[in-house]
C-alpha cells in the first residue's frame, strides 16, 4: 500500500472535501440560504422601487441596490450585517464538539492527520460555503438589477460590489472562526451556539454604548475645545472598531458609497480643497478601508490560533 509521508497538511484536503459536502447537504444550510435569498430578493426589490425615478441620473445606480433602504425594510447591506454572523455561527458552532458528541472525534484523530489539519479543513469548508452563498446572492442581486432597471452595472460598480463581497466574506469568516473557537472551548454544541450568539449580541447591542462610555472616561471633554471633542470621538471610534460589525459597516460605506471621503470624525480643515460630493476613485476607497480589512483578518487569525492551542492539548476521551 502506498502511503504519503505526513506533512502538516496530510489529510487537509480529505477533511475539507467531506466537511464541504456536509455543509452543502445539511438541513441547516438549506434553511439559512432560503432565509438569505428571500431577504436579498426582498430588500433589493424594495430598493429598486425607490431608485426607479433616478435611473439615468445616478452614476452608481447599481450600488444603490445594495445600500438603499425603504421603510420599514432596512437596506440589503444592513440585513447582511445581521445575517452573515448568523450564517458564520451556524456553519461553525458545532464543528468540533459536534464530533465529540457523535463520538467520531477519537476515531478521526486516531487516523494519521494532525489536529490542525482537521480544524483548518473545517474552517476552509465553512469559508468556502460562505463564499458560495455570497457569490450566489451577488448573481441574484445583479440579475434583478439588470432586469428591473434595465441598466447594466459599470466596470467600477462590478469591481466595487465584488470587493464588498470580499469584505462580507471576511466578516462572516470572523464569526465562523469565533464559533469554531467556542466549539473547541465548550463540550456541548448548545452551549457553544449560545456563547457565539451572546458574543454577537454583545457587539451588536452593547458594545456601542460601552465604547461611548469608555471614550468619555479615557478622553473627557473638560473645556469644550473642538480638539477635545474630536479626540473623544476618535477614541470612541477606535474602541468601536473592536466590534466586527463596525468594521463591516465601514467597509460597506467606503466601497458602496464612492462619495464617502473619510471614515469617522474629521475637522473642517481636513476637508479643505476637496470637492464635496465628487466620488472617490476606487483605489482611494480601497486604501481607506485597508486597515478595517486587515483588522478582520487579524481577528480570524487570533481566534483560530486560540482554538488551535486549546484543541492541540485537549484530551480526546470519546
Amino acid at each position: 500500500m502506498t502511503r504519503r509521508e505526513g506533512s502538516a497538511f496530510a489529510g487537509l484536503g480529505v477533511v475539507f472535501t467531506k466537511e464541504f459536502a456536509d455543509q452543502l447537504s445539511g438541513a441547516r444550510m438549506a434553511l439559512l440560504v432560503t432565509l438569505i435569498v428571500l431577504t436579498a430578493a426582498g430588500t433589493v426589490y424594495a430598493a429598486i422601487q425607490t431608485i426607479r425615478n433616478v435611473v439615468g441620473e445616478d452614476p452608481f445606480l447599481f450600488l444603490r441596490l445594495f445600500t438603499t433602504a425603504k421603510e420599514p425594510l432596512p437596506s440589503f447591506v444592513a440585513f447582511m450585517g445581521f445575517l452573515l454572523p448568523l450564517l458564520g455561527i451556524a456553519l461553525g458552532f458545532d464543528a468540533v464538539n459536534g464530533e465529540f458528541q457523535r463520538r467520531t472525534l477519537g476515531r478521526v484523530l486516531s487516523q494519521p492527520i494532525f489536529r490542525d489539519a482537521l480544524l483548518f479543513g473545517k474552517f476552509l469548508a465553512g469559508l468556502t460555503t460562505l463564499a458560495m452563498v455570497l457569490g450566489a446572492i451577488w448573481l441574484l442581486v445583479t440579475g434583478m438589477g439588470i432586469l428591473l432597471t434595465g441598466v447594466p452595472p459599470s466596470g467600477e460598480e462590478v469591481a466595487r460590489s465584488l470587493l464588498y463581497l470580499l469584505g462580507a466574506l471576511a466578516y462572516g469568516g470572523v464569526w465562523l472562526v469565533i464559533a469554531l473557537f467556542f466549539s473547541v472551548l465548550f463540550k456541548n454544541p448548545t452551549t457553544s451556539a449560545l456563547a457565539a450568539i451572546g458574543t454577537w449580541l454583545f457587539f451588536t447591542v452593547f458594545w456601542g454604548m460601552i465604547a461611548a462610555g469608555l471614550a468619555q472616561a479615557i478622553a473627557p471633554v473638560t473645556y469644550g475645545f473642538p480638539e477635545e471633542v474630536l479626540r473623544q470621538a476618535q477614541t470612541e471610534l477606535m474602541l468601536a472598531r473592536v466590534a466586527p460589525n463596525t468594521l463591516y459597516s465601514e467597509i460597506t460605506l467606503a466601497l458602496l458609497k464612492p462619495e464617502v471621503r473619510a471614515l469617522g470624525p474629521v475637522l473642517p480643515v481636513q476637508l479643505q480643497g476637496m470637492v464635496l460630493g465628487t466620488p472617490l476613485p476606487l483605489s482611494q476607497s480601497l486604501l481607506m478601508i485597508w486597515p478595517e480589512f486587515t483588522g478582520m483578518i487579524a481577528g480570524m487569525v487570533i481566534f483560530f490560533t486560540l482554538a488551535y492551542v486549546l484543541f492541540q492539548r485537549a484530551e480526546i476521551r470519546a
Binding site: 456536509d22 457523535r102 463520538r103 467520531t104 477519537g106 476515531r107 486516531s110 470519546a318
Partner: peptide
C-alpha cells in the same frame, strides 16, 4: 495502529 474507542461513533 488502529483504535476502536469504547463508544465508537460514526457519521
Amino acid at each position: 495502529v488502529g483504535y476502536l474507542p469504547d463508544t465508537v461513533g460514526f457519521y
